[in-house]
């Protein structure tokens, strides 16, 4: 005997917000379903399912303003990869989306889902952190979304700070300035595709007169929450890239991250590899400047 399952498929945001206002029972959101359907007990217990893929704005909206773009949270990775403006302005995001699962997964899984699942190994999370992504959370209160950053929404592995009636509506990405920054994203896993990462590193930086004007660094799978390596960033800012500085930065990053040992990798491996990835990225950048 199965219990009654309620399916809610709102057609637009207004309807979704209206339903959530009245809903008096816990609901489970479904977008690409690629994670929730393998979390067997959560999936089986869910009594009310809200399909975000039927919400028109969340799957089709991609508003482009002068300052940045607004990505519907239920757009698939494939949709994101294929958007020309994203390819032009955010190649680092395209690269991380391409490395998620397989094409079959990319065709279904969503950016909003990657964030809401709050896995420290979520591949887009370090990238969103270095892009200064802003998450727009519904339902709207007096017509306004609640705004938060990637490190604010995630409270621990698999945990986010959203209330039962809250959902991720959009991901706002400001255009990086100037238009031509240095970027680096690398994921280390058992194999190139279909592997949950052991760790990943995203770097975004700008130089001015051979010195680092600004740098943003975020490692994935190395702590319970996604956090930028602010001390390493500070150490590097205004520096000229040479082997000594690069070495120092790698040492600082290894101090700054607190990886754990689990089924996929060990504390030591993650730590030393994160340092090496940073070395690799900064050396590449140093060479590119010449």
């Amino acid at each position: 005997m199965t219990d009654r399952i309620d399916i809610i498929s709102p057609v637009n945001l207004a309807q979704l917000d209206h339903i959530l206002e009245k809903l008096r029972k816990p609901a489970t959101y479904v977008a690409g379903a690629t994670d929730i359907m393998v979390q067997k007990s959560r999936w089986e217990q869910a009594g009310t399912l809200i399909d975000l893929r039927t919400v028109q704005e969340l799957v089709s909206t991609l508003e482009i303003g002068p300052e940045g773009i607004l990505i519907g949270a239920a757009l698939s990775f494939t949709d994101i990869i294929r958007y020309r403006i994203i390819q032009e302005k955010f190649p680092i995001l395209v690269e991380s989306c391409r490395q998620i699962g397989s094409v079959q997964i990319q065709n279904r899984a969503t950016l909003g889902g990657n964030i809401a699942n709050a896995s420290p190994a979520g591949d887009t999370l370090p990238v969103l952190a270095v892009l200064n992504a802003e998450l727009w959370i519904g339902p709207r209160l007096k017509d306004n979304f609640t705004k938060m950053s990637v490190d604010e929404i995630m409270t621990g592995p698999g945990k986010n700070c959203l209330q039962p009636n809250q959902y991720i509506a959009y991901i706002y990405l400001p255009f990086p300035e100037p238009t031509d920054p240095f970027w680096y994203f690398r994921k280390v896993g058992q194999r190139y595709s279909m592997a949950i990462s052991k760790l990943s590193l995203a770097v975004l930086g700008w130089k001015h007169n051979n010195h680092i004007r600004e740098i943003r660094i975020c490692a994935g799978s190395v702590s319970p929450r996604i956090k930028r390596a602010v001390l390493t960033e500070k150490l590097l800012s205004n520096q000229e890239l040479n082997s000594k500085v690069i070495e120092k930065a790698a040492t600082q990053l290894m101090k700054e991250i607190k990886p754990i040992t689990d089924i996929r990798s060990t504390h030591n491996y993650r730590k030393s590899t994160a340092g090496r990835l940073l070395q690799e990225s900064l050396s590449t950048w140093a060479r590119a400047g010449k």
């Binding site: 498929s9 393998v38 399909d51 065709n107």
Partner: peptide, 27 residues
Amino acid sequence: KGECGACTVFMDGRRVNSCLVPALQLP
């Protein structure tokens, strides 16, 4: 679990793992 691809089908012109598509999203 969406890892092996043996259940691959096309859904609206794209390949997907049919083990990870719930009926509620089929209409």
